[in-house]
Amino acid sequence: MTGYPMAWEAATSMDRLPETCPYTIAEMEEYLFANHYHWSRDEAPTTFNVSGPCAHKVESDRRYWLFEAEKDRLAGRQEILCPICQKQHVLEPHHGDHATNPGQAPRADEARQPQWFVVVGTGNGCFDPSSKMRRWLYAETNDDDLSPEQFLEKAYREQLVADARS
């Protein structure tokens, strides 16, 4: 399973858990772009389109949201400010893309792109369940071809195992 590291913000004070997702779609897309740019060095830089939420889970001490993300086929040159390194990065369309060369058959690695999910949460801390986190997120590919509800349930159960260890 491919994934990107967790990003989070500790809570300064939090009386109640938010009812709505604490990250915007734009923030999730920025997170995915920056992590892809810096961690997926064997792939051309790309942006992502995030949609959802496609699943949601409410627990007494945490809330979870699940979003789907797709790699964007660039139609033109883009300049993006990276939130990780605070530098401008220039993205060029990949000239071998089927989208830019419709007469060509897609390459084998383009035939089926992996499905990406972004897991967002708030409430008890991921690393220390006795602490509070204002928000956190991470992204993973859905290599097991799970439904959104199954994927979120798996993420929730993995968090319970991590809680038991701390």
Rank of each mutant, 00 (worst) to 15 (best):
L74T: 11
A75D: 14
G76A: 11
G76K: 07
R77E: 15
R77G: 08
R77M: 15
R77H: 09
Q78G: 02
Q78F: 00
E79Y: 02
E79I: 06
E79C: 07
L81T: 12
L81P: 00
L81V: 10
C82V: 08
C82K: 04
C82G: 07
P83V: 13
P83W: 05
I84R: 08
I84M: 14
C85S: 06
C85T: 04
Q86K: 10
Q86T: 13
K87F: 05
K87C: 14
K87D: 15
K87L: 15
Q88F: 00
Q88P: 00
H89C: 05
E92Y: 03
E92N: 09
H94P: 02
G96Q: 09
G96L: 09
G96A: 12
D97M: 03
D97G: 02
D97H: 02
H98G: 07
A99F: 05
T100R: 08
T100A: 10
T100S: 06
N101F: 02
N101C: 12
N101V: 11
N101K: 11
N101P: 03
P102W: 02
P102H: 04
P102E: 11
G103A: 11
G103M: 07
G103L: 08
G103F: 02
G103Y: 00
Q104L: 10
Q104K: 08
A105Y: 01
P106M: 14
P106N: 15
R107V: 08
A108W: 00
A108P: 00
D109N: 06
D109E: 13
D109Q: 06
D109K: 04
E110C: 06
E110P: 02
E110H: 08
E110L: 07
E110Q: 14
E110K: 06
E110V: 05
E110R: 06
A111Q: 13
A111D: 10
R112S: 09
R112H: 03
R112W: 01
